[in-house]
């Protein structure tokens, strides 16, 4: 009832783990069976291993969220393919490999290396990391660059391909349209918002890179509005991301028009959240008479209230 197929990728339910919030999907086997997820989106994989940024990398904020500046620390594509991927396949996970790079060539290289291996269900392309000097946001806020990366990668794979967009742009719909036009199967909306916090005692920033990525329940309304904007801009599926903590939160993204959702920061607090969200979505569908997940996706009712029409808001 919650199954979904996009291109050749099958998702047994709409709940995925967001890149960078569930490691390589192998870190908590005692707690969690990854085959029960709709899919595991890996930590961003780059051509070479990356050390990541110096500490302090994280800070809790007083507003229901956290700042991070991890800096894409990862083992690099060779170690990922040799050591991490086989273990993920053995655990019967649906595997979406997230790729980060600092040049178009590097994106292509990593994807081509992955293409040599069976058991990868698709790719999510990180063109939106706020925490690295090269690549990341410098691509993600440049629409022709996002279009070019999409085009180059599309020509190199028949697998599921989703472009992960930043909300830190004036018009996210324009970026989504570029991805759609160049053949992306989906867009992942959204990566973290740029945020900042300081310690007033020391007057120093709370994280080493001064600004970082802001995530957690505080960003949900902003992320939902971005998904709504993208829904109006494109026809391709959307993967909704941003502050989802509960099944209710996940359903909001589905109703606005996301086909899949990702759990991110919540996994740092409750590694079992994915199980409860999957179950909660199923219960909601039963209670509200939805037999297919597709009927719930985009079920948003924006019929204007008569009083608003009367006031000239039509």
């Amino acid at each position: 009832m919650t199954e979904l197929q996009i291109r050749n990728a099958r998702f047994k339910n709409p709940v995925l783990t967001a890149s960078g919030t569930f490691g390589y999907g192998l870190e908590c086997p005692d707690l969690f069976d990854v085959s029960r997820l709709g899919g595991v989106v890996t930590k961003s994989i780059s051509r070479k291993p990356r050390d990541g940024n110096p500490p302090q990398r994280i800070a809790e904020t007083s507003s229901g969220g956290m700042l991070n500046s991890i800096g894409l620390a990862n083992v690099g594509v060779d170690v990922f393919l040799d050591q991490k991927l086989p273990a993920l396949i053995e655990r019967k996970a649906t595997v979406i490999v997230n790729i980060a790079a600092s040049s178009v060539e590097e994106y292509c290289y990593v994807l081509e290396r992955c293409e040599e291996h069976e058991g990868i269900d698709g790719y999510e392309i990180n063109v939106s990391c706020p925490n690295v000097k090269d690549g990341g946001l410098s691509f993600g806020t440049d629409c022709p660059a996002v279009a070019q990366i999409t085009r180059e990668l599309r020509s190199r794979t028949d697998r599921f391909l989703s472009m992960k967009l930043t909300p830190n742009v004036t018009s996210i719909g324009e970026f989504a349209r570029a991805c759609e036009a160049e053949g992306a199967d989906a867009v992942s909306c959204v990566n973290t918002f740029i945020g900042m916090d300081i310690d007033v005692g020391t007057r120093r920033p709370k994280i080493a890179t001064i600004t970082g990525g802001y995530s957690g329940p505080a960003i949900l309304p902003m992320a939902l509005a971005k998904v709504y904007e993208v829904r109006k801009a494109v026809k391709i599926p959307i993967i909704g991301i941003g502050g989802i903590m509960t099944a209710q939160d996940a359903i909001k993204f589905l109703v606005v028009g996301a086909s899949l959702i990702q759990l991110g920061t919540v996994l740092f607090v409750d590694p079992m959240a994915a199980t409860t969200v999957v179950k909660g979505i199923e219960e909601y569908m039963q209670q509200n008479g939805f037999s297919q997940i597709n009927d719930l996706i985009g079920a948003l009712d924006v019929t204007m209230q008569p009083s608003l029409v009367a006031a000239g808001w039509s």
Partner: peptide, 16 residues
């Protein structure tokens, strides 16, 4: 040190 997940998934607590 400050941590988020405590289990190695967030990569938030490095020491050199």
């Amino acid at each position: 040190c400050q941590m988020a997940c405590g289990i190695g998934i967030c990569q938030g607590c490095p020491v050199e």
